[in-house]
Each structure stands twice: as structure tokens, then as C-alpha cells.
Nucleic acid binder design. Structure first.
Length: 220
DNA sequence: GCGACAG
DNA sequence: ATCTTGTCGC
């Protein structure tokens, strides 16, 4: 279909704008984003509620929250960024805080076209972004140690696109990859710094809770 | 051709 | 992602 070619082109455009570079220190405040949906009967359109939270990386307290709602295209593997990034960016825009680093619930360059959700958010904002997903999408990696802090690179097509990180002892790991203006090594440091108690980053947990809280308020 | 497929 | 209470197990 012609529409698919347009979407693929947009994905390639974003991938072409991604820049990988080191990021030394984890900022004092990190933004977490997520979304909850009310799917339409078919799966062509959905009402999405995007959420953005600002978390203090020292106390892990949420210091600011914002949400945004809009209709978006239905879900399709590989196109999450096109579906979700717009609502997330709208929610981030409502924050009074200027984002220094954004953590997304999905992959960054560990994507077939190197254009995961975190890439769309980072490029769209011009701010460093990290992708932290709960499931592997592309690539392979060696066996991971069972203790918190264990790390294995995710390799696809001969290149390192991310890392598998064990955030809690004997608990299913998370899959991290750069979205924009950051590198794999820094992504690992950021995710470990944001997981003092649970498997997922505090930013993701807070954003997830806010999104589903706001989603229940949506009236059709 | 077949299977797999983030959230 | 979403439908969803109690319950099994450490």
C-alpha cells in the first residue's frame, strides 16, 4: 500500500536524524513518559492518553505531572513511534520543567529501522532520550547474569544497538537502547540509577500510573 | 514459504 | 496496550 511507503519514509527520516553520543552525568531530574489507550473497534484508530512526569533522581519523588489526549493510528509492530510519540510530546510540552533527559517505555535504536519510540521522542524534542522496553524486539545477546547490574549487548546486523540489563536479582531483565543524543553505555547507567527498588525505572512506573489514572477519566 | 512481531 | 479478584508462593 502507498501509505506504508510514506510511513516507512518517515521512519527512515527520523533514523537519519538520530545522533549517538556519550552523556556523562545522570541529570537531577528525568522525565518519564507513557500512554494508555481506548482502542476503537477495528484497530485503525485509538484514543490515546499520554503522560509525562518529572522525577527527582535523588529522592525518586515525582515533582511534576502532565497529560494530553488525542486520537492516534492503531498499533502496528515497528510503528509505535509514529503512533505514540505525538501524544507524549504534547504531554511533555505541558510541563513547566525543561526536559534534560526523557525515558520512554519502548525501544530506541534497537529497532528494525533504528527508529524506535525513543528516537521519535528524542529527535522531536531535540533532547537526550533512552528507550527501556520490557520485551526484546530485534537482535540477539549472550546469556545474562542473574544479579542486578548484569549487562549484555544486543547485537543486530553486526552492530551493537542496545543492551539487556538485569535491574533486580533473579527478575526478568529490561532492554535498553539509545533514542537520541546518548549512547548504550550511558543508557545502562541511567536505567540502573532509576531502578532502586523495582524492575522498571521509577520514571516509567510513575508515568504508567498517571496514564491509566487519566485514561479512566476519558469520556467518549 | 513460514513465523515472528516494542506497546 | 486492554479485559481483571483472588490467590498461590516465597
Amino acid at each position: 500500500m502507498v501509505a506504508d511507503e510514506i510511513l516507512a519514509g518517515e521512519q527512515r527520516r527520523v533514523a537519519g536524524l538520530v545522533e549517538l553520543r556519550s552523556l556523562e552525568a545522570v541529570p537531577d531530574f528525568v522525565v518519564g513518559v507513557d500512554a494508555a489507550y481506548v482502542d476503537d473497534d477495528d484497530n485503525q484508530v485509538s484514543v490515546a492518553v499520554g503522560s509525562a512526569v518529572v522525577v527527582d533522581t535523588k529522592s525518586f519523588e515525582v515533582v511534576e505531572e502532565a497529560t494530553s489526549t488525542m486520537s492516534v493510528m492503531g498499533y502496528r509492530p515497528g510503528l509505535l513511534g509514529l503512533r505514540e510519540a505525538p501524544v507524549l510530546l504534547a504531554a511533555i510540552d505541558k510541563l513547566s520543567t525543561v526536559p534534560e533527559l526523557v525515558v520512554c517505555d519502548g525501544h530506541g535504536v534497537a529497532h528494525p529501522l533504528r527508529a524506535g519510540l525513543a528516537c521519535h521522542v528524542g529527535v522531536g524534542l531535540g533532547v537526550p532520550s533512552v528507550g527501556c522496553a520490557k520485551e526484546l524486539f530485534v537482535g540477539d545477546h549472550g546469556e545474562l547474569g542473574r544479579e542486578r547490574g548484569a549487562v549484555e549487548f544486543i547485537v543486530e546486523g553486526g552492530e551493537v544497538v542496545g543492551a539487556v540489563v538485569r535491574t533486580r536479582n533473579d527478575v526478568k531483565p529490561v532492554y535498553v537502547s539509545p533514542g537520541h543524543l546518548i549512547d548504550v553505555e550511558a543508557c545502562v547507567r541511567v536505567v540502573l540509577a532509576l531502578t532502586p527498588r523495582f524492575r522498571l525505572p521509577e520514571t516509567t512506573r510513575a508515568a504508567d500510573q498517571l496514564a491509566r489514572r487519566a485514561e479512566k477519566t476519558v469520556r467518549l
